[in-house]
Write a protein that binds this DNA or RNA. Sequence first.
DNA 1: TGCCATGTTAAACT
DNA 2: GAGTTTAACATGGC
Length: 245
Amino acid sequence: MPEGPSIILMKENLQKFVGKKVLEVSGNAKFDKEILEKKILREIRTFGKQTYLIFDETAVRIHLLMFGTYSIDEQTKPDQQLRLSLIFKDGGIYFYTCNVKLADSEFLSKIDWEADVMSNAWNPEKAEKKLKTNPGMMVCDALMNQDIFSGVGNIIKNEVLFRIAVQPESLIGNLPSKKLKELIAEARNYSFDFLKWKRDFVLKQHWLVHTKSTCPICGEKLVKKQTGLGKRRSFYCEKDQKLYQ
DNA sequence: TGCCATGTTAAACT
DNA sequence: GAGTTTAACATGGC
């Protein structure tokens, strides 16, 4: 579920509750849930993999982490797994196994919305500046860095690096300027392809390297390796993706 | 059955 | 204290 584009889809699905009053709150989330009762859901905002349900004096921050899910109008999992539910007059929202907490307006004001690859506010020049201050960072870590490419996850990382023919362990500082710009452009481009394919339930069939075993260009066996500080799996072709080291 | 994974944070180390 | 590593969370698919 939870890379940036999937969160955009979640926001779309929850949109029908905006402007509606919360009648009932439950779930095992550890905060005072009563304060949400009778409040009107004013807006839903996303930042990368995070979702904010904005109310008048407070906001709820939802992060699905690795396994989080949600359902609309019907509770589809047992109470034990229900982290938070908001019941409205005509239905409700149910979040399961995710991270939920309250966020105040000060917290929201500190978010760098221009770092969100899915946002209209996305600022590629700013991303370039951030990258240039980290020349020793591996490209695989850079793409996964939520302060630079908020919303990018491991799948997007692998597919972007294949598209721009760069080996995941390449160092940011060693990429030619043109490649660095491609990296930034494709992080956003691929995220929107991801969104389109996910919407049509055809995402997986468009994966070129992620979880794959052979290179779609040359047919050689792909390398599967834990890379970078995050030690997340990378799938790449040694022939078709250049290592800038 | 056991392992692993679209993620992040906090604790426990050095 | 800084920097690094490990553990924890928790579920579904293979």
